[in-house]
Design a protein around this nucleic acid. Structure first.
Length: 481
RNA sequence: GGGGAGUUACGCUAACCUGGUAGACUGCCAGCCUUGGGCGCUGGUAGUAAGGGUUCAAAUCCCUUACUCCCCGCCA
């Protein structure tokens, strides 16, 4: 069947071969000449733009403004917050030369922009009246380490938003958390159809320079976790390092309280990995660049084919007027079967088949990508039907994601259960005493880290699986990309 | 950072071990033919990852580099 070798040759259960093959053959991405730096082809970039536009609008609704800071950060500036620098220095890419002449100070290609942004913040913030200052930028960052890149999931360059807020009080700063995580969760659910686990990072795993980190943990189909969107309460760590001070209402000088938060192109990787199948890409309908492909099935008669063409165009216009991203595949050098396979590989959510039968009965056949169902629909009910199918597919994909993630979560009470099962992937929800010692030893011995501590701790009970002291948290242990 | 396996046209693969004309399928282009799950015919087009070495002669042997996959390490 795959005699052309155009389609998928690996099954989803062969995950590490399937995943890159899926991305390449569906023309979602391509590799570049630099390892770990991928090319986003139109359907991938389109999906990112949808996420970006949605999040951007939500940010603006709550008063966040967009800015753009430079790509290059002088070394001296990057060194200012010690913990932050230590966290990132092994993976910073440096610009050392301009043409043949050496620069007097080398420049970091931003791994993240705290330092360069806060240098400016310190100049701009004088009084409590300047606060809150809530800026965001959409950009790319570079982190140059690791030997085994995975497209989207671990890449040397990726796209994201960097939100950097400054508040006059700890309380105001902390209050931003639910606002931001809420937007990210909604984007994941409403656009990518992904279910995530919201929780707090441990001190050991938190962002370099933060007081507290929160994350939405995502899960790949092989049971390994991926950190999704995150939010960090930085307290006064950066404001002290970068001298971001303001005169408060009591006329006293005070260091400001800060947050940082991000959603990155990683979510695209989890999205396609989660929803796609042995036939190829499955794209959530709201993110698909091409939502509906119309495939006319030619007859052996010029007369009928002309009518088919008119009918197809009529259908196309109906869809377009309704705001759907639809097109007709009129290529005459491919058979319908070829086209079916091609658009399934590329993840088009819905295919309309229109042939002589449909023409005569004033209907179309809708083929649904994720379930492979085909349904006949009369033309006057088409829009209603497509709207329903979009909603139904969207909900199906989200529910599948939720079911998959939940199926990976195992409640355990003993360290043995973790050791025995971790090689198969999965998330192990277990009592933990809260000590970094136990956390590090577990990580060294099993490769499992605490991905996060779910916000909902109502099931707290028992004793730490490692040291047997009374548990202070229920933590999620998992191997992580 | 350590170890292993690879890289021949978009893709899949033959020739490699044993050095001597790079061959098929697919693709792509042109034309014909038709098309309800990867039709067919004719002609054309395109390839040894990059660099170096050995040799009369290198896809083939040797070295270096890049990239891909796997195992370990490291890691927002």
């Amino acid at each position: 069947m795959e005699k052309n070798e155009l389609g998928m040759t690996h099954k989803k259960k062969e995950f590490s071969e399937w995943y890159p093959e899926l991305l390449i053959r569906s023309e979602f991405i391509d590799y570049s000449l630099v390892s770990g730096a991928i090319v986003f082809r139109p359907s991938a970039y389109f999906a990112w733009e949808i996420i970006k536009d949605y999040v951007d609008k939500e940010f603006k609704k709550i008063g966040i403004e967009n800015v753009y800071f430079p790509l290059f950060i002088p070394e001296s500036l990057l060194l200012k917050e010690a913990e932050h620098f230590e966290g990132f220095s092994p993976e910073v890419a440096w610009v050392t030369h301009a043409g043949k002449s050496e620069l007097s100070e080398r420049l970091a290609v931003r791994p993240t922009s705290e330092t360069i942004m806060y240098y400016s913040y310190a100049k701009w913030i004088r009084s409590w009246r300047d606060l809150p200052l809530r800026y965001n930028q959409w950009n790319n960052v570079v982190r140059w380490e690791f030997k085994n890149p995975t497209p989207f999931i671990r890449t040397r360059e990726f796209l994201w938003n960097e939100g950097h807020s400054v508040f006059a009080s700890e309380q105001e700063a902390r209050a931003e958390r639910d606002q931001i995580l809420g937007i990210y969760l909604k984007a994941l659910r409403e656009l990518t159809c992904l279910y995530g686990i919201v929780g707090k990072k441990t001190d050991y795993e938190k962002f370099a320079g933060a007081v507290e980190s929160y994350s939405i943990e995502l899960v790949m189909p092989d049971g390994w976790c991926v950190q999704g969107p995150d939010f960090h309460y930085d307290g006064q760590n950066f404001s002290k390092a970068f001298d971001i001070k303001f005169i408060n209402k009591e006329s006293k000088e005070e260091y400001a309280y800060q947050n940082t938060y991000a959603i990155s192109t990683r979510v695209l990787g989890v999205m396609v990995a989660t929803h796609s199948d042995d036939k190829g890409l499955v794209l959530p309908p709201k993110l698909a660049q091409k939502q509906v492909v119309i495939v006319p099935i030619p007859a052996r008669s010029e007369d009928i084919d002309k009518k088919l063409q008119d009918y197809s165009e009529k259908v196309l216009n109906t869809l377009k007027e309704h705001g759907l991203r639809a097109f007709i595949d009129n290529r005459d050098n491919y058979t319908p079967g070829y086209k079916f396979n091609e658009w399934e590989l590329k993840g088009v959510p819905f295919r309309l088949e229109i042939g002589k039968k449909e023409l005569e009965s004033n209907t179309v056949v809708i083929a649904i990508r994720d379930t492979s169902e085909k349904k006949g629909v009369s033309l006057d009910k088409l829009i209603e039907a497509i709207d329903n199918e979009i909603e139904a597919m969207h909900n199906r994909l989200y529910e599948n994601s939720k079911r998959m993630v939940q199926s990976f979560i195992h409640n355990i009470e003993s360290y043995d259960e973790l050791k025995k099962n971790i090689a198969n992937g999965g998330i192990y929800h277990a009592p933990w005493c809260g000590s970094t010692d136990c956390e590090i030893k577990i990580k060294q011995e099993t490769g499992a880290k605490i991905t996060n501590i779910p916000l909902d701790q109502s099931d707290l009970h028992g004793r730490c699986i490692y040291c047997n002291k009374e548990a202070r948290y229920m933590a999620n242990f998992a191997r992580s990309y």
